[in-house]
Every structure is written in structure tokens, then in C-alpha cells.
Nucleic acid binder design. Structure first.
Lengths: 193, 193
DNA sequence: ACAGAGAGACAGACTGGTCGGTCTCTCTGT
DNA sequence: ACAGAGAGACCGACCAGTCTGTCTCTCTGT
């Protein structure tokens, strides 16, 4: 692994723990065992690093959460698989995200402080919500969902549940409670059929 | 309003927007229209201010969210009323919390960075979860809830939903989506009876 | 084959500016 | 006259970012 990759991976961990603003360049240099020269040789600024870390985080997110989804035809089964992936593979990925989901950390920290950075983060949230909504609509059209439910409401509920479980994981760093709430979401989804 | 109260209220707003670490003493002085002398005359440190702001935030939280709860006997109705309060009175309280719920901001920002501060914040979360759990257990004992549901799972689900809605409010600052997900939680609760 | 030039990688001293916090002084109400 | 409130100069630590210098590797002319 070259220095640039090392800096990105170490930053990913540090940002997950302490946020973007809360992590100093010095912290990163120490973690990556390098110096200012080594850092600025690869990144033109701390914000430049931010975007490259965000890209890597998204890659990891997709790798964990979308695993095996393309093999599933049924849209509700797809959502269930996603929730299971989120619960089993992503949420407790302390290797990459020791401080919990980096997107939530970024979003909360940057929304009112660095809007041009948080905009990029929030695009990811909107993308996830869109995916859930599309799958639910597809299912409803196929007549699989009860006709009296609003896919908008379910989307918000699932999304809020996933987000909330993520914050909870940060609170007590135990996977037990988030596990329970994601599992409850899966049950809930099952009952809508 | 005296200077000390003014500093606490302005800090409440600023912390809600930019977090504790992200808000500088200078920001607070400007907002409260005072000086270092005025500040340190009333607070012995920034952390001292933190605890006093936290106390005020809790007072506001209780005032908004527990309003009218003591007049309700039925535990499920109590939870419903709480969720309605949360949705209608608390979440969109831009007066006190222009950047969204201060507890979530604090928790995400401080969990891995100032554990002795976040511990106090998390105690509040645990308290809320405890309240929900007690009400649900009470309801189940009275035979009002379906016997096949786990109150632990519902507690986690409700709590995660509330937390998630709060984060979502921060993301797009529109109350529409959080409203929908809190309303979906109320429906969900209704169906468990 | 080999000397020398050039490029890229990295180290770390240094800059201007901001941080939380202290200290002294003045102003005001009693 | 005096005590408490508040103003603001000041301190050392730390921030992101710059700059100079060194070391190593590769490429080129002979």
C-alpha cells in the first residue's frame, strides 16, 4: 500500500471517530506515519482529502450493503437483504469505521458549518432514499404490498430507522441495540405484505 | 434577561448549529454581544458552559415533549402524545434549536472525542429509552398490546425512528420528511394494539 | 557502462491566524 | 469608597498550509 492510500484509509478511521473538523492534519500524519511534505505531495488541501475519503467510504458502503442484491429479483426481498447487510456487514465494520458510520458523522458535523461539503454527503442519503422508494413502488405496482400503505411513509420510516440505528451504535458502541431495531424494521416490512 | 442567561441561550443556538467544539468562545461573545471578561465572570470554562447549556436544553426538551402527558392515563396514548409533541412542538423548534436537536449534535460530535461530556448526553438517551420501555411494558401487562411482540424490539424501533427523524431534519431542514416518519411511527404503534 | 541531470517523494522548520483561558483595568451602582 | 460587572490586551498551544532542503530513482548522453 502506497502512502496516498494509507493516508486515505487512516483518515477514514479518524474522520469516523472525530469528524472532519475534529481531526487535525497532525493526527493524520501521526496515524499514517508521515509528514507535511508527504501529505501535501498527494493532496492539495484538507478538503481535497475530504472528497477522496468520501469516495472511498462510498465504495466500502456499496461493497458491504449492496452485496448479493443483484441476484435477487423480488424488490421486498432486495430491501430485506439490504437491511440484513446493513445490520451484519456494515454497522459493525469497526475495521473501516471504528467511530461508526462516517456519513452520519459528516452530515451532523458539517450541515451548518461546511455546507459545500455536507451537500456531497447528503446526496448519498437522497440516493439511498430514492433506492428504497423505487423498490417499494415497484413492489406495490406488482400488487405485493397492501394497497392502503403509502410508499413515501414506509420509505421515511425505513430510512429514519436505519439512520437512528446508526446513531445508536455510536452512542453505546454495542451492536446489540441497533441489531434489534434493524431486525424490527425487517419484521415491520414483512407485515406490510 | 441578564448576561448569563443570554450567553446560555445564544450558546444553545450556536451549539445546535455548529456543535460544542465547532463553536468558539469568540462566536459566543459576538452573539451575546459581550467580551471575555463578561463570559469568564459567569463561567469558569467552556466545559462549565457546556453543562449549563445541557441543563437548559433538557428543560426545554421536557417542556416541549412531555406537555400534557401527565393528563393521560393509558400508556400507549402517552407514547402517541409524546410522538406528536416531538413532531409538532420539538423537532421544528428553530427558536431554540436552529440547527436541529442539540443532543444528537452533541452525541455524534463528542462520543469519541470528549467521552466525559458525551456521557452526560447519552444518559438522556438512556432515560428516554427507559421511559418508552416502561410504558410499553405497562401496556403489555395490561393486555393491551399483542402478546407476540417484544417490547424491547418496539422500544428500539421507536427510539431509532425518533433519532433518525431528528438527523433527517438536520439534513434537509424541511420538516416534511421527519413529520412523515414520526407519523408512520404512530401508525405502527397503533397497529400493535 | 557510467556520470550527471532531473523528477518525484518525503521531512520538518516556519508562517499567519485562531483557539481557550488569564489578567489588569475601568466603569457603574450603592 | 468600594465591590462586582464587564472590556479587552495578552498568553501559550494548536490549527491548516507553505517552503526549503534532502534523498532516491530513472532517464539520457557519451
Amino acid at each position: 500500500m502506497n502512502l496516498k492510500e494509507k493516508i486515505i484509509l487512516e483518515s477514514l478511521k479518524l474522520f469516523s471517530l472525530k469528524g472532519f473538523i475534529g481531526t487535525s492534519i497532525h493526527d493524520i500524519l501521526t496515524a499514517a506515519n508521515t509528514s507535511k511534505g508527504g501529505f501535501y505531495n498527494h493532496f492539495k488541501s484538507k478538503e481535497d482529502l475530504f472528497f477522496q475519503v468520501l469516495e472511498e467510504a462510498r465504495r466500502i458502503w456499496r461493497e458491504k450493503n449492496l452485496k448479493g442484491l443483484e441476484d435477487i429479483e423480488n424488490p421486498i426481498e432486495k430491501i430485506k437483504k439490504f437491511l440484513e447487510n446493513f445490520r451484519d456487514l456494515y454497522l459493525k465494520d469497526a475495521e473501516n469505521f471504528p467511530g461508526g458510520c462516517i456519513f452520519v458523522t459528516f452530515s451532523v458535523e458539517l450541515n451548518d458549518q461546511r455546507p459545500h461539503l455536507s451537500r456531497e454527503v447528503n446526496r448519498g442519503f437522497i440516493g439511498l432514499k430514492g433506492m428504497l422508494k423505487r423498490l417499494l413502488d415497484e413492489s406495490k405496482e406488482a400488487g405485493e404490498l397492501r394497497s392502503d400503505v403509502s410508499t413515501d411513509a414506509i420509505t421515511e420510516m425505513l430510512f429514519a430507522g436505519v439512520l437512528g440505528a446508526t446513531v445508536m451504535y455510536g452512542v453505546d458502541k454495542s451492536a446489540e441495540n441497533p441489531d434489534r431495531s434493524i431486525s424490527a424494521l425487517i419484521d415491520y416490512l414483512e407485515k406490510l405484505r
